[in-house]
Design a protein around this nucleic acid. Structure first.
Lengths: 329, 329
DNA sequence: CTCTGAAATGGTTACGTATTCATTTTCTTA
DNA sequence: TAAGAAAATGAATACGTAACCATTTCAGAG
């Protein structure tokens, strides 16, 4: 591999000068620059990122721990994050976390001397929070938060659950069910809280409503859906904690020959891009702002990296996006 | 930052021994290992990946240049690639290439001393091919190939175009149009070739058929669709070169109040996961094999990295997946 | 011309690890 | 118990760059 030393020798200057030509050319005589550039050209020299990282203690890498892309929410956020990071001249190390592989991901992440971390894999009570904090580098959670209540960007999940449920109730539905995820995740816990609040405010006893807390892979959602179908009183509306779940429920309904919204109303939360597709047209609750949550989060992370902010605690407000999967009972 | 030297001093051994404890513990006395591990624990030492990379000349990084995730094909492939790479203990630097940002991506990629590159951004005649080849590291293209005809994994694109078109013809449609992408990309060129071949074999003059070669972003597809609507003789079937285009066409049809397949048949190519969703149920052509193209490609790339193979030139066979967006005329 | 300060360049070192080679310690066996 | 082999450890170095400090070169003022 050709190094800056080789270039230096070839051009008849010192390695220091080669480095200067590339980093602070204003300190080098034009004629020298020319010489060095010619040598670089002819030797096909490409600076070694790794060596630079070592000496500068900056890797130019942002680590992203996303959820899996079969969840369209992470399609939207990953796109926003990666593109933003690259536009800022950084690189992205990406991981798709599931229940199985998180340990090995965290191991790898801690060794990588990234300049910052953005993640959506955090549980409400999660030891990894403290390990990451101990790294001493900027980090931010999006869509989930930790008990410690620091470094997060989220939507107003309680409100989102409330709005979704309230919408269903306002359409006249009274046989409702909730299908959400594990409550170790703040997002699911809070959205469910909104569900209960809405029921209460409408004078309904939450305890009478069937609720399902499932893992968010297709198989488990299917299992939950089958349980729904076997309920003594079939619900007329299904409130899903996320668009990903809602869209899968949609799929299962159609697979069984049901019609949405005639047989079942379905509502989600997140307002993912896919929900806007006219084949899906999912009624959902999402950000008031045009920006995606991923974008907001990565923007904030850079603020922290640039010391413009110290600690992010941001909860974005939400609104209803009525589409075609809900209707008057 | 605490280094292996600090650990060494704390444990009363040499830095070499610390390194050995972590990499070749079988060469260290158990008692010493214990001492060192205790020091590592107490000092909260985490080995520095960067320094290791520098001396070993291995970064443990695979660079992935994917297309944008709003194309569901890249959702599938990115998932497969990232998960496979991480499972093998490597990291992934990911980029989402578009027309605008490819130059800056390539700049960044060439500087990163990745151990290998996997990409789907290559044009048929593209100078970057030679620059990457000059890097001297393993690389592979998926879904596209270069004029030089080396280092690629693709589906049989000509055959795919043929099968799709033939299916439409066999359903009795005669007013067909083709909507594809720029022909600088091998994929589009070859799928279109299959389209023409099928017409020819059915005794139809390809020149009489309306064809559209558009960029693959939503706006341009919309523009093409509007042109289709203004054709003197409205086609009964639209052959899209990719599922991404087909699904967007589906969206536009529904937006305009058309019914698919009653008003328009739509067929795609790629058999992306999303096409299987019952709200979409897109008829398409895809891999015969169960594996995703991304998986096949990354598997092959590792073969090259392990010197099991030298140069990959792989074309996978395809078959029809009939679903609900096509029907007898 | 000479002096002075600025501009330009070079020598050396540090970054944190793995590796190579040398040395010390321990074990085995006669 | 001594000798030789094997095991365990350490010292020095390389990786390729940027940064620091020292030195040389140059331009302009007196």
């Amino acid at each position: 591999m050709v190094s800056s030393k080789d270039v230096a020798k070839y051009a008849g200057v010192s390695q220091t000068t080669v480095s200067r030509v590339l980093n602070t050319p204003e300190l080098v005589k034009p004629k020298t620059i020319e010489k060095v550039m010619k040598a670089i050209e002819e030797l096909n020299y490409i600076p070694n990122d790794i060596a630079r990282s070592l000496v500068q203690k900056k890797t130019g890498i942002i680590t992203l721990i996303s959820g899996p892309l079969h969840n369209p929410f992470f399609v939207d956020t990953t796109t926003a994050i990666v593109n933003y990071v690259n536009a800022r001249g950084y690189k992205v190390n990406v991981y798709f976390g599931t229940e199985d592989n998180l340990d090995s991901i965290y191991n790898s992440v801690l060794e990588t001397k990234a300049d910052a971390i953005i993640l959506s894999s955090m549980l409400y009570k999660d030891d990894i929070f403290f390990k990451i904090e101990k790294l001493g580098i900027p980090f931010i959670m999006y869509n989930r938060k930790h008990q410690e209540n620091r470094h997060f960007v989220e939507i107003d999940n309680v409100e989102a659950g409330y709005i979704a449920t309230n919408h269903i109730l306002s359409l006249g539905h009274r046989d409702i069910c909730w299908i959400g995820g594990p409550h170790e995740i703040s997002t699911f816990y809070e959205r469910y809280k909104g569900f209960k609040n809405a029921l209460k405010d409408n004078g309904i006893d939450a305890k009478t409503m069937p609720v399902f807390f499932t893992n968010t892979n297709k198989d488990d959602i299917k299992r939950a859906f089958e349980e729904i179908l076997e309920l003594p009183k079939k619900p007329t509306a299904i409130c899903a904690a996320t668009d990903a779940i809602a869209i899968e429920i949609l799929n299962l309904c159609l697979e069984r020959g049901f019609h949405v919204p005639k047989d079942f109303n379905v509502i989600g939360i997140d307002n993912v891009e896919l929900s806007k597709h006219h084949s899906i047209a999912l009624t959902t609750v999402g950000l008031e702002s045009e920006k995606s949550l991923g974008f907001i989060a990565i923007e904030k992370l850079f603020e922290v990296m640039e010391k413009k902010s110290a600690c992010i605690q941001q909860t974005e407000s939400v609104k209803l996006f009525p589409r075609n999967t809900t209707c008057k009972k």
